[in-house]
Design a protein around this nucleic acid. Structure first.
Length: 396
DNA sequence: GACGCGTGGAA
DNA sequence: TTTCCAAGCGT
């Protein structure tokens, strides 16, 4: 960015108009220094008055702030709160996290989703201990080198924990700036993201970078919301180009989303000796990587769901089932497809099972299932198992 | 650059 | 009911 005071909205006009008149000009694509300062002051004043209480705002510990930012990726504040407390109680320091078992880390992440975050955070903690003497890096190059730390998280941790002048660009900031500046390009493109990031860095309050970043996100979460934004309560409405034009809800501009595919999945609740159930661990990478589950998979061709269940159990563990009967059916949505999960219960017909590479199995009692990290859909089956265990009359 | 990757709450 | 999408990142 250059020549910022010689654009279509001359700074002199803004200077004369701003203090006294209601005719405040909306912000040009290259705001002047004075316009940026007014923006910062208005935003931070609002933030100081209206910011919500959050557990990670009670600490200066870079490790805790890092953990919170990983959890907050694509995840709402209200969801993160409890996970944050439990996770930091279990792993109060980066050393404690680094020394933990992967399964224990995943168990504390169970239900939070995007499980690669937990695996990467765990691995990154071990690198911080081994390569940085246990100190979360305070430079852009070093922190972005950690797994799971991208442009957003790097800027967030550096600004909030270390007061470094890096603007974040998340969904909130994208929306707020797209509206304030009426950005008429697809906001999901890298070109637009670059423009928005430049704008955010120009506006950034250098003396309070962490608060500025959180203020932008807080405004997006509380006031400048995706649908029906509350412009009447917005401290920036006077300079917002979209509000000036009455087109707030048309920003940010995003492409139409693709239809979500649906799959039918069959899983087997395979009972062996002593009423133990057969579970297996998913491969480390990919969907739900590292979590435990009941064996199963996609229905193929014209086969029945029960046939799909038998086939998948045979393919994954090399064993057959007897006394197979329908147990429970549920619907579930993942990030990029939906499923109907058809669960069958039955007994081990032969055996013993053989584990496939990277997919170990175990025999566990219903009570012991709680010790393992399961995907949400499997957890719902477990809840049903426990419900029927306490109400035996419903088992038939 | 496009796609894969969870979950739950709000509209 | 369905759709949207939230403090994004890795490959």
């Amino acid at each position: 960015m250059s020549g910022r005071s010689s654009r279509c909205e001359p700074s002199l006009v803004f200077f004369l108009a701003h203090p006294a008149l209601p005719l405040i000009p909306t912000l040009p694509l290259s705001p002047t220094d004075r316009q940026c300062q007014a923006f910062r002051t208005d935003l931070l004043d609002w933030y100081d008055e209206h910011k919500r209480s959050m557990p990670w705002r009670e600490t200066n510990d870079p490790y805790r702030i890092w953990v919170s930012e990983i959890m907050l990726q694509q995840t709402r504040v209200s969801t993160v709160r409890d996970y944050y407390h439990r996770f930091l109680e279990a792993f109060p320091s980066v050393e404690a996290l680094a020394a933990a078992d992967r399964d224990t880390v995943l168990k504390h992440w169970e239900g939070l989703g995007f499980y690669a975050r937990a695996r990467h955070l765990h691995e990154a903690a071990q690198r911080v201990v081994d390569e940085h003497d246990g100190a979360v890096p305070d430079t852009m190059d070093a922190i972005k080198d950690l797994k799971g730390v991208g442009p957003y998280t790097a800027a967030a941790v550096l600004s909030i924990a270390y007061q470094r002048p890096h603007a974040v660009l998340d969904g909130n900031v994208t929306r707020v700036l797209s509206r304030v500046f009426a950005v008429d390009e697809d906001a999901t493109t890298s070109a637009a993201q670059g423009h928005l990031r430049d704008l955010a860095n120009e506006l950034l309050a250098p003396e309070r970078p962490g608060d500025f970043n959180q203020a932008m996100m807080e405004l997006g979460a509380l006031v400048c919301t995706p649908s029906t934004p509350h412009c009447d309560r917005c401290r920036l409405n006077a300079v917002c180009r979209a509000h000036d034009a009455g087109t707030e809800e048309s920003y940010p501009i995003t492409p139409e989303s693709d239809p979500v595919p649906h799959k039918d999945i069959a899983v087997g609740l395979v009972f062996g000796d002593h009423d133990r159930l057969l579970i297996q661990r998913r491969p480390d990478e990919g969907l739900l990587g590292g979590l435990w589950e009941f064996p199963g998979g996609k229905q193929e061709g014209e086969e029945s769901m029960e046939a799909a269940c038998r086939r998948e159990v045979k393919e994954e563990l090399g064993v057959g089932m007897t006394d197979v009967e329908p147990f429970y059916t549920l619907s579930h949505a993942y990030s990029h497809f939906k499923i109907t999960l058809h669960a069958f219960r039955g007994r081990l017909a032969d055996g013993p099972p053989e584990a496939r590479e990277d997919q170990p199995f175990r025999w566990v009692t219903v009570d012991e299932l709680d010790d393992y990290a399961f995907p949400r859909a499997n957890r719902r089956l477990i809840e049903e198992l426990e419900r029927r265990q306490t109400e035996p009359s419903l088992f038939d």
